[in-house]
């Protein structure tokens, strides 16, 4: 991951905090996201650290001294049982699915490598996660949970959603960020308002 490059190295969406692009209600929401990282409520200590290890592979941030927190927000969602509004036939309700899924990955690591997922080399972790994504798993570790569906519908989807809800992620992809009351004027191809990220062509 040392190769990660952003075309917007000088852009920080938070610099727009006091501009007309941000209103009170948005500042309140983002302030909480930056400052009030939830404590562990739902996951066990063990599940929490396992999920951290998984998140570090699915959304690696090796260059950051303080990575964007991911697990606390997933835990909060689980604690509050905020569901997506549906589950596919064969999937247990959200909370059980997470519990079973994390246990599945832990079991899979023990089964394959005789060790804890957290202790595996990054490459081995990636290989294992890739197998889960493809559904190439040892059925005994997963109960009735479809592993591939857990991976794509819950695990990965939630992790990327949390990461890309963070202003640091918006900055690195050059997203304009919050926009109210001020929106945008220049909408066309290759058009950029002064309050948007400027791309560095290398």
């Amino acid at each position: 991951m040392s190769g990660f490059k952003t075309p917007y190295p000088d852009y920080d969406v938070l610099k727009k905090w006091d501009t007309p692009s941000w209103n009170e209600q948005t500042r309140a929401v983002i302030k909480r996201r930056l400052d009030e990282i939830p404590e562990r409520r739902f996951l066990s200590e063990d599940e929490w650290t396992l999920l951290e290890a998984i998140a570090a592979r699915l959304m690696p941030q090796p260059e950051r001294e303080a990575p964007v927190p991911i697990v606390p927000w997933i835990d909060e969602k689980l604690a509050e049982d905020r569901r997506p509004g549906y589950r596919y036939v064969g999937m247990p309700p959200m909370r059980e699915a997470w519990r079973q899924g994390l246990a599945g990955i832990a079991g899979e690591a023990r089964e394959r490598h005789g060790t804890d997922f957290r202790d595996l080399e990054p490459d081995a972790q990636d290989a294992l996660l890739g197998a889960v994504q493809r559904g190439e798993i040892d059925g005994r570790q997963w109960g009735d949970l479809p592993a591939d569906r857990f991976f794509s519908e819950l695990l990965l989807k939630e992790i990327v959603a949390v990461y890309y809800s963070h202003p640091a992620a918006w900055s690195e992809i050059g997203f304009g960020g919050p926009a109210s009351p001020r929106g945008y004027v220049r909408l066309g191809l290759d058009e950029r308002d002064p309050w948007e990220a400027e791309e560095q062509h290398v």
Binding site: K5, L58, P60, Q133, E199
Partner: peptide, 16 residues
Amino acid sequence: RGLWGAALRQEMTRYN
């Protein structure tokens, strides 16, 4: 689409 990890993060920089 199946992307995750470094590949996803790098691909996201092409968002614009």
